[in-house]
């Protein structure tokens, strides 16, 4: 039993990778396999891991098991960047790199704006930060909607495809850069798991345990924001993954960060791979991975609301 608890998610991951690589491949086409199947599978694994991992940190940071990294407003900021790249026509001139740069730049600008407002408001607590994130997210989403209603039909199709989440728009250089950043973040966070554990408690308690809560709140916020900006720039908006994977991991492994954050990542990879496989193998109509996860995640969220009384920390 313990074996399956510890290694089960990895076994599932291996099975899913195999399915993702070989299902309906037919005769072996080198080009399809190396240029499409492998990069798309890696994209799903890496983006899924990053979102699950960021989701777990976000839930600790905001002391709320219903928190999702997208709630912080960063993804909406990044999406606005994508919309601007399409609106200005830059995407058609420079291709996917422009999407990546605009999405990341708008994501980073969003981090500074949200923190600038947070510092200006003066009340330094998690609720203030969360509220600023929500309001910022709503404002940038509205701006994106304005752009969407003012661009041509041809452009709308491409932009919507992106905003609904996809594992198709990969660029190997961007993907490698993201993997390096993710590994660095993982190595650093691994050394700070005890601090993350202590941040679960009230700010007062965490301080009395020797945690510089103001410093680490900023650091972990930036980590979440960076990971989310990257994932949006690579595969658009994929919601609910950051909510579902930490919740599954918490139910199996408890709340200790050393297990929670890493297994949340693995479950994130598994969930996104499942959606990717489903999306790729439904031929009747186009079904973006982001939409699959939003529907499943929405139902999951409602079940959580109905069934559990331990949702509030």
């Amino acid at each position: 039993m313990k074996f399956f608890k510890n290694y089960g998610p990895f076994l599932i991951l291996i099975i899913l990778i195999t399915i993702s690589l070989f299902l309906n491949l037919g005769f072996f086409d080198k080009n399809i396999f190396f240029r499409i199947r492998i990069p798309e599978t890696i994209t799903a694994i890496v983006v899924g891991f990053a979102l699950g991992f960021a989701g777990a940190i976000s839930q600790i940071l905001f002391k709320n098991p219903l928190s999702d990294p997208y709630i912080l407003g960063i993804s909406s900021g990044s999406s606005l960047g994508i919309a601007v790249a399409f609106l200005t026509g830059i995407y058609y001139l420079f291709g996917q790199y422009s999407i990546f740069i605009f999405s990341l730049a708008f994501g980073l600008i969003s981090i500074f704006l949200i923190f600038g407002i947070y510092r200006a408001v003066g009340r330094k607590n998690t609720v203030t930060l969360l509220l600023i994130g929500i309001v910022y997210g709503l404002m940038t989403s509205s701006l994106t909607s304005i752009i969407l209603t003012n661009i041509t039909r041809e452009k709308i199709h491409s932009i919507i495809e992106w905003l609904y989440g996809t594992t198709e728009f990969y660029d190997i250089k961007i993907l490698i850069l993201f993997i390096i950043i993710l590994l660095l973040v993982l190595l650093w966070t691994e050394k700070k798991v005890l601090i993350l554990d202590q941040m679960n408690f009230s700010d007062k308690k965490a301080r009395s345990l020797g945690v510089d809560i103001d410093k680490y709140r900023v650091i972990f916020f930036v980590i979440i924001a960076l990971l989310v900006s990257f994932t949006v720039s690579i595969s658009g908006i994929i919601g609910f993954l950051g909510l579902m994977s930490p919740h599954i991991a918490r139910n199996i492994y408890g709340s200790r960060s050393k297990y929670l954050i890493f297994y949340s990542g693995i479950y994130g990879s598994n969930l996104l791979l499942i959606s990717h496989i489903v999306s790729k193998n439904i031929n009747a109509f186009y079904l973006p991975v982001g939409m699959i996860l939003s529907i499943v995640g929405g139902i999951y969220f409602l079940i959580l609301l109905k069934g559990k009384n331990d949702l509030k920390f």
Partner: peptide, 23 residues
């Protein structure tokens, strides 16, 4: 510094909520 303060005192404040998932 905050990290060193924990060597001086420990405290239990009123209304500390228990977090699910920790034994």
């Amino acid at each position: 510094c905050i990290e060193k303060r924990r060597e001086l005192f420990s405290a239990t404040y009123i209304n500390e909520n228990p977090i699910p998932g920790f034994t």
